[in-house]
């Protein structure tokens, strides 16, 4: 029925970071502080990777937004000893924060290193709490978290559709990063729907997947830059 995925057009992406920012607000991602960030403990569900090619003055920089790829064959779900991360019927790699024992095996198994860990109890000062999204649960110390394709928005869209007795239309549900991108570089939809842009663009000749040879079949397809 539904197999949610994304296409990210690197031609359009300017590296502005709006997707990163929107994701942080939408999903109540805590700030870890500058020292912890320097020690590679910052939590980024949507990260912006920087690929630098060439030497000064002929430098080319490519910014690549990197959410969780929600692979068809996720290596992280295979290794979780308690099924705190699993793949659901709609193609999302989901998580159960209250079951996670914090062994970090999934973090180690993910070849794209998309998962983050709460090394300390996340700081949520009162100002932060005022801006929290009530639809997203707050994670606690010692559990693993990652991008969920804003699953809470999917739940809300489904509830609304059921309330109005209509079928869920794809564009009813868009993750925060898709909505926030000013260049419309991120397209989100159902790969099962052969009429949707996501399916069409996924077959374009510019399309590539990260580390495709690993066989994880990621559902985030990148369209290569044209220069």
């Amino acid at each position: 029925m539904f197999n949610w995925g994304m296409v990210i057009d690197l031609n359009k992406c300017t590296g502005c970071g709006a997707c990163v920012s929107a994701c942080r607000s939408e999903n109540n991602i805590p700030n870890v502080g500058p020292e912890e960030s320097r020690a590679a403990r910052a939590i980024f569900w949507m990260d912006l990777l920087e690929v630098v090619e060439g030497e000064f003055p002929d430098v080319k920089v490519q910014y690549i937004p990197r959410p969780c790829f929600h692979c068809e064959k996720p290596p992280c779900t295979k290794v979780c000893p308690v099924r705190a991360t699993y793949k659901n019927d709609e193609g999302l790699v989901a998580q159960i924060y209250h079951r996670c024992i914090g062994c970090r095996y999934c973090m180690v198994a993910c070849p794209y290193s998309v998962k983050s860990f709460n090394w300390y109890e996340p700081e949520r000062p009162p100002e932060f709490r005022q801006t929290c999204n009530p639809d997203v649960s707050l994670r606690m110390k010692g559990v693993v978290e990652k991008c969920t394709f804003c699953n809470h928005r999917l739940q809300k869209a489904k509830d609304r559709a059921r309330f109005e007795s209509v079928e869920l239309q794809e564009n009813d549900y868009q993750p925060a990063c898709v909505e926030a991108c000013p260049a419309s570089a991120i397209i989100f939809g159902n790969f099962e729907d052969k009429k949707h842009a996501v399916y069409r663009l996924g077959k374009s000749n510019r399309a590539f997947k990260m580390q495709e040879d690993l066989g994880t079949e990621p559902k985030v397809i990148y369209l290569a830059r044209e220069d």
Binding site: P81, R99, C100, I101, R104, G142, V143, V144
Partner: peptide
């Protein structure tokens, strides 16, 4: 090594 040893019995 566990982040949540209190949930060890989940195994």
């Amino acid at each position: 090594d566990l982040g949540r040893p209190d949930r060890m019995l989940n195994i």
